[in-house]
């Protein structure tokens, strides 16, 4: 019987990953250090404040940026979470989201600006982003483990990969969709490329960029929950534990907490752009 030998694809990938792991070790170490430091710092900082003070601070921020309604909802929601005894996991989830979002911005905004300004770069980036967004979320968990092992750093890595596309895409879109006459006006007055970017393109793209940041935060939050499978801890960890022990009630509690955090973050970041517009 004639038989086509099976392609050793899995071996290839393993080999590639093993090579990559050692090749980019300095990078992964730096990333790990930054993430660990960031998460620990934020958790320590937030944990240092009495919960009530933190709630009021968040409420005040929500009031200032969004509205009184959002402020009331935030404080009530956080009180509810605190009452359920989920304050600690909530803080570590928020810390992970903030760190991951920060890294996504750090990488995503420059890439987005570049692809907003350069048609050829945009053509290169777009298919990659398409691929990243159609990939099932937990696929990103797999490469995270060989690089970082189980734990929050691997979770942050997977989260960044998963949540970065909207930051790039919407930054690029925001720059591209600026009215042609605006750009002409800027050019006609003799702006340099940098002046045009800083004084005209970025401010005009800001609402769209903020929408991208908002989406990135939301994706981060959803990924942080999935990343509980590889040891992200936090609220996702609570859900994950509840699933494993078949404790539906606990699962629902942690799930509700996640929804509340999602809504607070969403309302607040959504309104930052609007606020800037009216300023």
């Amino acid at each position: 019987m004639f038989e086509i030998p099976r392609m050793p694809l899995a071996q290839w990938v393993d080999g590639l990953l093993a090579w990559l792991t050692s090749a980019i070790a300095p990078l992964t170490r730096a990333f790990a250090g930054f993430v660990r430091g960031g998460i620990d710092g934020i958790v320590a900082g937030l944990g240092f404040l009495p919960p009530v003070v933190l709630m009021l601070l968040i409420g005040a921020a929500a009031w200032w940026i969004a509205s009184r309604k959002v402020a009331i909802f935030s404080v009530a929601g956080l009180l509810f979470i605190w009452n359920l005894g989920l304050w600690g996991p909530t803080l570590s989830t928020i810390a992970l989201v903030l760190v991951a979002t920060f890294i996504s911005m750090l990488i995503g905004l420059p890439l987005g600006i570049l692809s907003g300004l350069s048609q050829s770069f945009n053509k290169m980036v777009t298919p990659v982003l398409d691929l990243m967004q159609t990939m099932p979320a937990f696929v990103y968990l797999i490469p995270a483990i060989p690089f970082f092992g189980l734990g929050p750093v691997a979770a942050a890595f997977a989260t960044v990969i998963f949540s970065i596309p909207p930051a790039i895409r919407l930054t690029s879109l925001g720059i591209r969709q600026i009215d042609r006459e605006m750009i002409e006006a800027s050019d006609a007055f003799g702006t340099t490329t940098m002046q045009k970017l800083v004084k005209v393109q970025l401010p005009l793209a800001l609402p769209t960029i903020m929408a991208g940041i908002n989406q990135t935060i939301m994706l981060s939050l959803s990924m942080v929950v999935i990343a509980a499978m590889i040891g992200a801890g936090g609220l996702g960890g609570e859900v994950w534990r509840a699933i494993q022990r078949l404790r539906a009630g606990q699962g629902v509690e942690a799930g509700l907490a996640i929804v509340i955090i999602a809504m607070i973050l969403d309302r607040i970041t959504q309104n930052i752009a609007v606020k800037k517009e009216q300023a």
Binding site: D179, E181, M182, E184, A185, V200, P203, L204, L206, K276, E277
Partner: peptide, 9 residues
């Protein structure tokens, strides 16, 4: 410009 092209920000 025809549509003014003022910077809204």
């Amino acid at each position: 410009f025809q549509s003014f092209a003022l910077f809204p920000h």
